[in-house]
Design a protein around this nucleic acid. Structure first.
Length: 431
DNA sequence: GACGATGATTCGTC
DNA sequence: GACGAATCATCGTC
């Protein structure tokens, strides 16, 4: 026997219930004496309630509720319902956590949007800044800006989330009340209410996922705008550039700092080791491509380091006699002492260098320093002038100013730039 | 806004 | 993995 047949037979007890009878309990009693009444008609009358006006429907509902056969009808409906629920139960399994939502949750947590506020955004900002290689103070403005924007996103996210949760709970309550109300006239099991609640929650969680997704996108955009190292390139400060240039020009024969030297330079310049590597990579290439352009700079740093060396040497000679020219501080990478730049220093008090007017003050300073301290005589005879040129230091191959036996001297500006296409044309400076 | 300088990235080579 | 070379993208100056 199928469900419909059972239902029909169950309803047989209600036979003879006319529309007029339903509206009138006394009339119901009368019509019970007509068991041959078409059951289809009765069902149609029940179904027709929905088409009636509210008042009529209420009256009919009341009449049906009061009908003595109502429990029988209700139990049949319950039986059918139970079967239906069983079949639904097989389909509706407990949903596993959505991996997409989990990913979004993890990301929002990592970015400091969800989860505990403290440390979240600022930690992410600091980490991103560290990855970008900036010194802690360099990006402070950007960081505060970033944090402010992140806090804004966080606030919007939480307020929207709260709204959704409130709406979800309100709607759930409403539906539950409605179902409880309806459960008086039709069989609604608690399980069915639970299922309905679960459906509502699923709908709302899909909205939540959209919210999380757009929040993640906003954070990503913010990150790329504020913390992308490439977009937010900052020139190194003057002191850092000077330190790097001093090293470069004083090691011009072999401008490849060791790991230790790189670390020390990084520390001195408040930049990262990889930034030091980048700087030297760029510098080597650009120097090689256009030596002529860098001559003046090379001379400037040669003089500068020479002045430093002279004063150091003078101090040393004052402190100990005889002088100990190589008494650099421990751990120093000898920026001021063993550089190739000193190779040309002998000529400094001659006039053959062809220094540009810009260099003259430095030369004058050097002269004053050496005259005052008499350090120059010692300097010129000291090991400071010993080249530490590597036998294979041919990094400037093709550079006419570089030979296998001598290393960089103060390069007279009149020396022409290296001929040939590789040095005369370079895409780098033309972009 | 044009232009050069410059730090970072990418790709190929060793 | 370090390096050279090319390129990108931004900064700073005029």
């Amino acid at each position: 026997m199928d469900d419909q047949t059972r239902m029909m037979s169950g309803l047989a007890g209600l036979g003879g219930l006319s529309q007029a009878d339903v509206g009138d309990p006394d009339g119901v009693r009368k019509s019970l004496g007509q068991p041959q009444q078409d059951i289809g008609d009765i069902l149609q009358q029940i179904m027709a309630i929905t088409d009636e006006s509210l008042d009529e429907a209420q009256a009919r509902k009341h009449a049906l509720n009061c009908h003595r056969m109502k429990p029988a009808l209700f139990s049949v409906l319950c039986e059918i319902k139970e079967k239906t629920v069983l079949s639904i139960r097989g389909v509706q399994e407990e949903d596993p956590p959505d991996p997409q939502i989990m990913r979004l949750d993890n990301m929002l947590l990592a970015e400091g949007v969800s989860g505990p506020e403290k440390g979240g955004g600022s930690a992410a900002a600091a980490a991103a800044a560290a990855a970008a290689g900036g010194s802690p103070n360099d990006g402070s403005i950007e960081h505060s800006d970033y944090r402010a924007k992140l806090a804004q996103i966080r606030q919007i996210y939480h307020s929207e989330l709260e709204k959704y949760e409130q709406a979800c709970s309100e709607f759930t309550n409403h539906v539950m009340n409605l179902l409880r109300e309806q459960s008086r006239t039709r069989p609604i099991s608690p399980k069915e209410i639970e299922r309905m609640v679960a459906i509502i929650h699923r709908k709302f969680s899909s909205i939540q996922m959209q919210l999380k997704q757009s929040t993640c996108e906003a954070v990503m955009i913010l990150r790329s705008r504020f913390l992308d190292a490439r977009r937010k390139r900052r020139n190194f400060n003057k002191q850092a550039t000077e330190v790097l240039n001093e090293y470069f020009y004083s090691h011009l024969s072999n401008p490849y700092p060791s790991e230790e030297a790189k670390e020390e330079l990084a520390k001195k310049c408040a930049i990262t080791v990889s930034q030091v590597s980048n700087w030297f990579g760029n510098k080597r290439i650009r120097y090689k491509k256009n030596i002529g352009k860098f001559q003046e700079e090379a001379n400037l740093y040669a003089v500068k380091t020479a002045v430093d060396a002279a004063s150091v040497s003078a101090q040393a000679s004052q402190a100990n006699s005889p002088a100990t020219p190589n008494s650099g501080s421990p751990g120093s990478y000898s920026l001021s002492h063993t550089g190739d730049a000193y190779l040309g220093l002998r000529s400094l008090n001659g006039e053959g260098l062809g220094l540009t007017p810009a260099l003259q003050p430095q030369v004058d300073t050097l002269h004053r320093a050496t005259h005052l301290t008499a350090g120059y005589e010692e300097l010129s005879a000291s090991s400071l002038f010993t080249s530490h040129l590597d036998a294979n230091s041919s990094w400037q191959d093709g550079d006419p100013t570089s030979t296998s036996t001598t290393t960089t001297t103060l390069i007279p500006p009149q020396i022409p730039s290296p001929p040939g296409p590789p040095c005369s044309i370079h895409s780098d400076t033309s972009n």
